[in-house]
Write a protein that binds this DNA or RNA. Sequence first.
DNA 1: TAAAAATACTCCATAGGTATTTTAT
DNA 2: ATAAAATACCTATGGAGTATTTTTA
Lengths: 301, 301
Amino acid sequence: MELRHLRYFATVAETCHFGRAADRLHVAQPALSHAIRQLEDELGVALLARTTRQVRVTPAGEFFLAEAQRVLAAVDAGVRGARRIGEGQLGLVRVGFTGTAAFSHLPRLARALTQRLPRVELEVRADLLTAEQCDRLRGGLLGIGVLRPPVTGAGIDYRVIEVEPLVLAVPADHRLAGEPVVAMTDLRTEPFVTYEGRDSVVREAVLRSCRDAGFTPDRRHEAPGTAALLALVAGGLGVGVVPASARSLPLAGVVFRDLAGAATVELALAWHRETPSPLVTTVLAALEDVFPSARPPAAVT
Amino acid sequence: MELRHLRYFATVAETCHFGRAADRLHVAQPALSHAIRQLEDELGVALLARTTRQVRVTPAGEFFLAEAQRVLAAVDAGVRGARRIGEGQLGLVRVGFTGTAAFSHLPRLARALTQRLPRVELEVRADLLTAEQCDRLRGGLLGIGVLRPPVTGAGIDYRVIEVEPLVLAVPADHRLAGEPVVAMTDLRTEPFVTYEGRDSVVREAVLRSCRDAGFTPDRRHEAPGTAALLALVAGGLGVGVVPASARSLPLAGVVFRDLAGAATVELALAWHRETPSPLVTTVLAALEDVFPSARPPAAVT
DNA sequence: TAAAAATACTCCATAGGTATTTTAT
DNA sequence: ATAAAATACCTATGGAGTATTTTTA
């Protein structure tokens, strides 16, 4: 038995007329008679009760028709689905985010995705450092990473979507809270709350900024993420230097001030160069105009 | 696309090995390579990522595999179902019953059917007179009738499964309630509760019995069915003459007594001769030893 | 008698076979 | 070096076409 038999039978059963069914199927009438006969022989049941003047569907035919229609519908669904997946319009993307990007960029990304690729499901893994994301991209555990260059290791392509200045976060009652702009050098004597961990790109940018301003910061406390860091700042335990996108995480008792003389950090979309799954490709393409490149694309070996 | 493609793909995807899949499918390996290539070309998607050393299923392939399996399962179900229907082992039989048969014979019939043909559904239409059942059998509204011959009209075959004597139903305090056997002639002066309607076979048998005993009954009341008739008897409104199977409908205040000199009535399984649907045929066959013929089969034109 | 399904017969497209090559580990 | 998929090529089955017959309403 082949799909041909089911297609032929379904059409004949629906029209109750071999000639018209043959027309619809673009085959000659004897081909139909033959195929239906084959089908009935294989099943050992009459599906159609036919005289030369009328064709009726038997109870067995009625039942088989229902199944045949299910089958043909399932085939159709399979074809469509497979094609959609092939075009990257259906499936599950796992997207990783660095700390603050989860707050500032995730909402826009999610909204854009559900609007443009409604059949693509989004799975989010937040609070991943750049190095962790690169590993997971290579391992296929992530499809796309929202991270801060430079990327570590080989095989990762990325596109910078934002160049953010570092800004100052101080308690609302801090002496610098009143200044519209603060210079890095003003922070020489301040106790710092910094990000913890060796691999944090922001942490490195902050330390570099201090070095460039001619001092080594008094790192009084460390926090595992931006939210915790700001909480410590609100508690008056020190000042924080964080990416501007942290402003989308307002916390009572913390004010943000522009920082003159501080480094910038970048935010980029990254993916594994070797496995350009159609899903990731279309998702990246769909995100092109929501997150345009902030600089010409760059690749790192 | 044909089922062949789905069968081949499913097997390769399950084994992840063209050679072993070819063995399982009893075809040569190049045939598989070719068929899968065809399928992928038609879909425009790679379903299998293959090197000469390993075969992996792509996400599109994963999805398509699931659909293919659904399809193959549905085809199988369709084949099995159609065959079962062809053999009459699946489907819905509508069975009609005359008044008392519903109480005396329906339980046994239903039990036998669910046990022997568990996939056959039973739809019961009770309280149908013989003439009504014959019409419905001819019209295809009933598959089988449990009725009292003689059948009316042409095209109905039947098999007598029971020859029942008529018995007497009297109030428990009636003068005849004490007799072990009552003769028809003893009823000459009794008020009768009879079945209503012109076509009732039992009613005619009762009237004939009275005529044979030399009297015309005093038909004081009429009831639309055995249950109602017995209720009137219990109420002391008269005596009833009913088929012996009415004994399976015990009612407080009514006692049954054998009747000497009364006619017998038959109970038969009847079906439409022209449309011997496999369902009806197997059901009748399955009922053969639960309801053996009480006399050699008879046909009426 | 006429419409429509079945049958008879022919042809070529293609499914599937064998032999061989290519490729990745 | 070798297992395994792809390629090349060939054969024959059978799907589908045309012409015709059969059937029944």
